[in-house]
Design a protein around this nucleic acid. Structure first.
Length: 276
DNA sequence: CCTCTAGCCTGCTAGC
DNA sequence: TGCTAGCAGGCTAGAG
């Protein structure tokens, strides 16, 4: 499932293939992917003759910057972009195709059909969902230790749920939250408002460093993630707890335990990550 | 303000 | 072996 490091990697590879290309037409095979505008024909109309000038990442979102509009795309668990020559057979899970004037196409593929696209006139993307509720990007200078600690002090929720909350910090998902809490030696069930400033700082630093390390490895491939060139990530080799159920902890040797926290599968070393 | 649940989907796995 | 039921997963909307 693409989280921040995977989306960052996808953005960088995709830019090599689609920058400065001009859309002539769009094919939509599964309309529920398109959340904005409501009318699919209007979606196509707005994109026709538009060129892709840049691609940005905000949290787990990709932002395609065109002439007059911005396409905000979330890949959820299985979304993928790839570039093909026009006329290649359309695969079973291809739901949207952006046809370029040069004989190539950008294809959106998504086994689960959970991904979303929102199209806005330039500037409006920040005033509307899904971007208007997002917290700071972990690498932004607004994601300060002070901001983070104030957020933790204000909530009675468990720390894992807070880290997954995209309005607090945008980009962490299930894998990197589990890894962050392991690196910080904090149990996922600890209440956020009970954490000492020292502990909050450990989590804040671990989150930023875990994401940086994962980007350096091209992301994490658990079962299906590849970037837009088809390359796997390599960070799975550096995972301490995620997907390591019953495996010995790389630090203390005690088997990693899997539990449910806020409805999510959660991996923890109960020796390294103390409740007290 | 908060938390919980259903819904969105389909591939995979456990159980028969 | 072949079948079905249930689960996973990020996020939203609605209920409590």
């Amino acid at each position: 499932m693409p989280e921040l490091p995977e989306v960052e990697t996808i953005k960088n590879t995709l830019k090599q293939f689609v920058l400065n290309k001009t859309i002539t037409d769009v094919s939509v095979y599964w309309a529920n992917i398109i959340k904005q505008p409501d009318d699919i024909d209007y979606f196509k109309y707005l994109l026709a003759k538009q060129s892709i000038h840049d691609i940005h990442r905000r949290g787990k979102f990709l932002l395609f910057e065109l002439d007059d509009v911005v396409l905000v795309s979330h890949l959820r668990m299985e979304g993928k972009y790839s570039v093909h020559p026009s006329g290649e057979p359309v695969k079973k899970h291809t739901h949207v195709i952006f046809i370029f004037s040069d004989g190539e196409e950008l294809r959106y593929n998504d086994v689960r059909k959970f991904g979303t696209m929102h199209l806005y006139e330039k500037g409006d993307e920040w005033k509307n969902k899904p971007l208007n509720q997002l917290g700071p990007d972990p690498f932004s200078k607004t994601f300060t230790m002070d901001y983070f600690y104030q957020k933790l002090k204000k909530t009675d929720r468990v720390i894992k749920s807070v880290l997954l909350d995209q309005t607090v910090v945008a980009g962490l998902g299930n894998i990197y939250v589990d890894e962050t809490l392991f690196r910080a030696n904090i149990h996922p069930l600890k209440k956020a408002n009970k954490l000492k400033k020292r502990e909050a700082k450990m989590i804040w630093e671990a989150a930023i460093n875990t994401l940086k390390d994962a980007i350096a490895q091209g992301g994490t491939t658990i079962r299906s993630y590849v970037n837009s060139q088809g390359d796997m990530g390599m960070f799975q080799q550096e995972l301490f707890v995620y997907g390591q159920e019953n495996e010995p902890c790389k630090i203390c040797g005690k088997p990693i335990v899997k539990m449910k926290v806020g409805g999510r599968g959660t991996h923890v070393c109960i020796l390294c990550q103390k409740m007290e």
